[in-house]
Amino acid sequence: MRQFTYAQAIREAHAELLRHDPRVFVCGQGVWNPWYAGKSLLDLDKEFGRERVFDCPVSENATTGAAIGAAIVGMRPIVFHARMDFMLLAVDPIVNQAANWSYLFGGQVSVPVVIRSVINRGGEQGAQHSQALQALFAHVPGLKVVMPATPYDAKGLLVAAVRDGNPVLYLDDRWLYDSEGDVPEGLYEVPIGSGVIRRSGKKVTVVATSYMAAEAVKAAETLAQRGIDVELIDLRTIKPWDRDLVYSSVGKTGRLVIADAAWMSGGIAADIAAAVAGDIFHALKAPIVRVCLPDVPAPTSAVLEQAYYVGAKDIVASVEKVLL
């Protein structure tokens, strides 16, 4: 199998979609330059022309609204936001318009748009360049939210998102861009709404999203060396998340750690914890533990960044805690 980086996988998904579907176009700031997008859009403009792959003015609101309008009349746009923070300028078209459109008009018109944005972490960039706001959007009915953690899923979820027929937020993580993995040729889909078991185990279920799913793989290895076998679920889709998979795993292990590198309050982890506690309370042998970012804006100073970000060691500590 070909080894691709996460960024290369995203790029290949774009390329194949552009090649095979004339309705697809790619727009947004930074599309012509690797500064923000890394290799994830590299030279797509050269390959497919600057009419279908176009860099935009600093106008997130209009750019996103235009992508949504084009989707409504039958195109398949992918609109790119170099940082999730910048995408907040487009909250009206995403939340008020795209999310509601199908419902508002009795299902007669829909919005097959992909809104892609990058979550940046660290680099002393601070509070306005580092926000992981998946929960904000997962809160809204009518939106789907995917967060691939591997190169394979990065490609397959983008294909599925473009073909979904609904507004899909595709959130990729800058800290995953250089990670490598198998990526098949051709247009394959990773189904939206389905998580995957990365490692099976009996003692504790770890449900992780995006970057934390990669960290959880490392954590599981450390724990295995200590004789603790965890079942690791990479959620892949945040909205709608895979209840069947999570419930059947927790039914088996009775213990749950949820790792999501976003703020704890009102987050995805809270949603999963509430659902598990509400639906399969009897299966639980220990309190649920969440591994999330503290409720603090991202600082700049490296010392504070280190205190702020969570990773494998926090997952390890939490798993040990639910086993106490």
């Binding site: 601070g126 509070a127 306005q128 700049t300 100073s301 010392v303």
Partner: peptide, 28 residues
């Protein structure tokens, strides 16, 4: 990134402040 910085190490170059001089915040 020092604690003696104008934003106490929370802001870096892109978030400067000097309220006593009428500069209430610069943001990126």
């Amino acid at each position: 990134g020092r604690v003696t910085g104008c934003s106490k190490g929370r802001g870096g170059s892109m978030h400067l402040v000097a309220p006593a001089q009428g500069l209430y915040g610069t943001v990126p």
